[in-house]
Design a binder for these strands. Sequence first.
DNA 1: AGTAGTCTACCGACCGCCCGGTAGGTTGGC
DNA 2: GCCAACCTACCGGGCGGTCGGTAGACTACT
Lengths: 220, 220
Amino acid sequence: MTALDNAALRAVATAANGEQDRRAEIYRSAARIFHRKGYHATSINDIAAAVGLTKAGLYYYIKGKQDLLFAIMGFAMDQLDEQVIEPARRVQDPQARLETIVARHARLITQDSSALTILVNELEGLLPDDRADIISRQRDYVDFIADTLAALRDEGKVVGLDPTVGAFSLVGMILWISRWYRTDGRLDGDEVVAAVTRMAISAVLSRGDYTSAGNPEETG
Amino acid sequence: MTALDNAALRAVATAANGEQDRRAEIYRSAARIFHRKGYHATSINDIAAAVGLTKAGLYYYIKGKQDLLFAIMGFAMDQLDEQVIEPARRVQDPQARLETIVARHARLITQDSSALTILVNELEGLLPDDRADIISRQRDYVDFIADTLAALRDEGKVVGLDPTVGAFSLVGMILWISRWYRTDGRLDGDEVVAAVTRMAISAVLSRGDYTSAGNPEETG
DNA sequence: AGTAGTCTACCGACCGCCCGGTAGGTTGGC
DNA sequence: GCCAACCTACCGGGCGGTCGGTAGACTACT
């Protein structure tokens, strides 16, 4: 790399992307800390220290703590849209579509769960308008899954399962991964994704021969 | 209400169970508020106001905010022990035992999710020793479920499912109920419990004919 | 080449507020 | 008179957020 290249790169980097990089690093750090300690237990000072700034310095980049939270949640929702919903929309067959949804969502979580976990755990930290925005997008996601289950029901592959309950239950199963999956654990990310996907599909597909093991106390 | 009624009520309340009732009411209120707003976002004043006391008055009954949290979590864990684990231990057949676990846990959540939800969401608000205590009891619960799945595997009813992953996934499905179930919703508590229990069993029991719908992108 | 001005990227010090928690009463029933 | 069951008033401290700077890179002009 010549000095000219170097200078040119630097000019581009500082002028165009420098600030963006810093801002992105702030969001990443904030997401990690919010995820670990929770939004309310995290101080602006914690985040500033994590990126090597003072609190006042940090405020050069952000508007406030709540905006930071909303930005992180918006990013997570965008991830979900782009990497789960959009690809799944292009899958016609309902069962394959459901597999795509579960596998892609689960994979996102095993790769980096911070933002996606904040998305579901810190809703009450948002301003009412922001919260309404995020909740609406989340509802769209659940509806998308429920619609897929309804399509499977129309195919006869799902019997006797309420699509909404099914959708919520699958989402719960997927989101919970972030609580127990460890990168350095016994199973790697792909194995976890595969296992959870298999369970999810199995949970909704009806077995013609399903019977309870008999549990009068519970099923009376 | 006359002065006599008032005095009589007060006498009964204070003489026999008054202090216990008051304390129980404080825990219940605290659990409800922690559940709604989160532990860190809830102030001692919020709780005091909810039970009609000042902050100082509240401190006559409690030792501190963290003790309050630990007490609530301990109560939730006791509930789980007494109403889920102990009854399930008495069920010999593994599949029936699993049904008992899921149905009873789900039912607890549809009845009153406050304490049980705090139990899983506010761990980081505890002192390290208290947290270790709760985490240990939670791990015992997951192990109990995993052992039941292992027993089902030995019976040949579960094939190719890691018992630990299975246990976590079921727990996630159950716990998530508290996020979407509404008492005044379309389905009542019993219907939700039944639906989730059916899904849970279906998720772990192997179907001899299981095949993916074909999703090369995901399963490659 | 020197220099005066400008702008980005910060920092130290500070603000008002509310937090968890406490000290020292006060009151009403026994 | 005493004690349980509170209250008013207060404390130190940390919070989110702001203000007035300023070092240093860069630009414009002479």
